[in-house]
Simulated scan of single mutants.
Amino acid sequence: MLNIIHGADFHLDSPFSGLSPERAAQRRGEQRDLLTRLAQLAREKQADLVLLSGDLMDGETVYRETAQALSQALGGIPCPVFLAPGNHDCYSPSSVYATLDWPDNVHIFTTPAVEGVDLPQFNCTVYGRAFCSPHETGSPLAGFQAAEDGRLTLACLHGDTAPGSGYGPISQEEIAASGLDYLALGHVHQHSGLQRAGRTAWAYPGCPEGRGFDELGEKGVLLLHAQPGQVTGEFVPLCRRRYQDIRVDVTGSDPLDAVLNALPPATEEDIYRITLTGACTAPDLARLQRALAPRFYGLTVRDETRLPQDLWQRREEDSLTGLFLREMEQLCAKRPDDPVCRLAARFGLAALENGEDICP
């Protein structure tokens, strides 16, 4: 039984454009620290193999210290490491995979054709191939079938199981026909869980560090236990920070109190997007941002609340507020799907009631 770590989609040197320049630089440094955590995990779990299924880099432009940190970290893993370049870090004669000296324990797949590497000490064969351009419409597994020789058969590939993808589309039928014991995939940033097609187990580990609100929650790698005909696995969190997205109903409450009551105990290390919902006159987002920001590494507050129904009852008042609400009610009735009308009613009412403008 082999212990195998499967990781992918590190996207080192990502821009982190949603953060301040200082925080973005810090996050890129934390990405490099991820490499050290990967090496530590390999030692702690006594990994026999590490499979890295592409997009370790975010693009062709890589800081030299990042590439050196990757090489050093992989060289510190006391077992063979297999790396299959993906669409973001595709292999070429000018890529970092060709121009940097890599440790002896690291095997980088460099051709678009699948090749196999025999590991007799493990009674195992590891297959793999490389993206050699940013887009590939052909399947990496087209016509492939692993040798049937009683060995454990693994493949390390970057590809997409979504039909019609331009990033190495792979069908369930091709996975089932491959004869592999395990297919280690990269490209999808959400952990897939261990899947099966025929006798072949396959999975995406997801990215090990979230970079935006489309990559929420815990991120990490897979720890697999494999022998011919049998593969089991578990997800191992590895991320330094998490992106979290919560919605808070502020109906009948002070928005700040409602948000504080909805938060978990520890949020300081993470990046949150908080969306206000329910019925509310005009939440002061600037006030909320100032009050809540110290509780998070990063914070975005959004307003999706609606005007309370009872406010429209004031349209009968003989006042400027009543006149304003009568006009706005007619406008909103004519344009029911226009959010600008509702915003105009909300902020106009807030200005009349409070004597000042409230910015969204």
Rank of each mutant, 00 (worst) to 15 (best):
C124P: 10
T125E: 14
R129P: 01
C132H: 05
S133F: 06
S133C: 14
P134F: 09
H135P: 00
T137Y: 14
S139H: 03
A142M: 07
F144E: 13
Q145G: 04
A147I: 13
G150I: 12
C156V: 13
L157M: 07
G166C: 08
I170P: 08
I170L: 08
E173Y: 02
I175K: 10
A176H: 13
A176G: 09
S178R: 03
L183F: 02
L183E: 09
L185G: 04
G186N: 06
H187I: 02
H191W: 11
H191E: 10
G193P: 01
Q195C: 15
Q195Y: 05
Q195W: 09
R196E: 15
R196S: 15
A197I: 10
G198V: 12
R199I: 04
T200E: 10
A201W: 09
P205R: 08
C207T: 12
E209S: 03
G212V: 00
F213E: 00
D214E: 14
D214T: 12
D214Q: 12
E215W: 02
E215T: 03
G217A: 03
G217L: 03
Q227A: 15
P228D: 13
P228L: 06
Q230K: 14
Q230M: 13
Q230I: 00
V231N: 02
T232L: 06
F235M: 12
V236T: 12
P237R: 05
C239W: 02
R240C: 12
R241Q: 14
